[in-house]
């Protein structure tokens, strides 16, 4: 089918990311042949030897689709994000980090100074008596060495550049990527700009097979090792904090299918600016306690609420980062 048409030009880039998103692209396995049949990969640092300057030399809008994964947390990420935006027709924020900040976004709970101190001084494996910290410029005998500037804030991709679509997940489900890709290739009508693609339009519970018993409210929460899951009842009803009720589906309820509570990597449904707020509201509502002391005791069992409810979404949430 794609033979009579010019091949699509595809780019994949990682910003502040773990690499899992790139691996998820590789996970297309034999479908990669379909992809390659229809597209040229013009830029993909983990797989292809293409230099930044090669990208810089491309004409504007040269690339059809860029899958940008990872958050933006330093000047290099920002530079490439802007560059790719300029060279790309359809910019897709790929994966939780580009979408909402993701796990690297949890750094927004700390200041740059705190992070540096932890990483370059205090961590158990570090010995740094001279307190050597990364510098953006270091002059040595041979000349000047540069490092990207480490930003104070971790940003979502759309806080830096205009984003056309969001493909959520940590990482996104590979099948979803192939669907999206094939839609672009076949010239199917694309959803309105700004849409979340490759995901469902309801939350996790819609596909979840676990039973709701609607007995009484929750009196305390459990971390997964604290209590045995019965394997069939709604995890929230058992007291395990499951982000399912406020998290978009599309992953196939993978975590819950594997008997682990949903962590919320697919983010909220359309029109919900703050998944954590929604989840806090739902969870708190499910509590049974009425007395202030009892409520506090029950909430004591929610270890690290901010980190729990904003595990993947802190930079993209309403409050964005910790005040300093």
């Amino acid at each position: 089918m794609g033979n009579d048409k010019p091949k699509l030009k595809l780019a994949v880039y990682w910003g502040a990311a773990c690499g899992g998103c790139c691996v998820s692209v590789l996970d297309v396995h034999e479908k990669l042949f379909d992809v390659v049949a229809n597209a040229d990969l013009v830029f993909w640092p983990i797989a292809l030897d293409v230099k930044y300057k090669d990208v810089e030399e491309m004409p504007d809008q040269h690339i059809d689709v860029t899958l940008f994964n990872g958050a933006v947390r330093n000047s290099e990420n920002e530079h490439i994000a802007k560059l790719l935006r300029q060279k790309t027709k359809i910019m897709i924020a790929y994966g939780s980090c580009a979408h909402m900040g993701g796990i690297p976004g949890l750094a927004n709970f700390s200041t740059k100074e705190e992070l540096y101190k932890r990483v370059y001084e205090d961590s158990e494996s570090t010995e740094n008596a001279q307190k050597v910290y990364p510098q953006t410029e270091t002059t040595i005998a041979e000349g000047k060495l540069t490092l990207p500037n480490f930003y104070k804030d971790v940003c979502t991709l759309d806080q830096i550049v205009d984003v056309d679509y969001y493909l959520p997940g940590c990482p996104p489900q590979t099948e979803r990527l192939v669907e999206v890709f094939m839609a672009v290739v076949t010239g199917a009508e694309l959803p309105p700009k700004g849409s979340v693609i490759g995901a469902g339009s309801k939350v996790q519970c819609d596909e979840c097979k676990r039973e709701k018993v609607n007995k009484s409210g929750i009196t305390r929460f459990y971390r997964t090792w604290e209590k045995e899951d019965d394997g069939k009842t709604c995890l929230n009803e058992q007291g395990f904090l499951c982000m399912g009720p406020a998290t978009r589906n599309g992953c196939g309820v993978r975590c819950v299918e594997g008997n682990a509570p949903c962590r919320g990597c697919y983010g909220p449904l359309d029109g919900i600016p703050d998944p954590g707020a929604k989840m806090m509201s739902a969870i708190a509502s499910m509590l049974n306690e009425k007395e202030e002391g009892d409520i506090q005791k029950a909430l004591d069992t929610v270890v690290d609420p901010a980190g729990t409810f904003y595990r993947f979404s802190l930079p993209g949430s309403i409050l964005r980062r910790k005040q300093s």
Binding site: S281, A284, K290, L299, V302, P305, F309
Partner: peptide
């Protein structure tokens, strides 16, 4: 009002973590 109280108590913990 109880639902409100529970949400408020949780929110207080959250905003404290957010440095507010």
């Amino acid at each position: 009002n109880y639902k409100c109280l529970r949400r408020y108590d949780l929110l207080q913990r959250y905003i404290e973590q957010m440095g507010i």
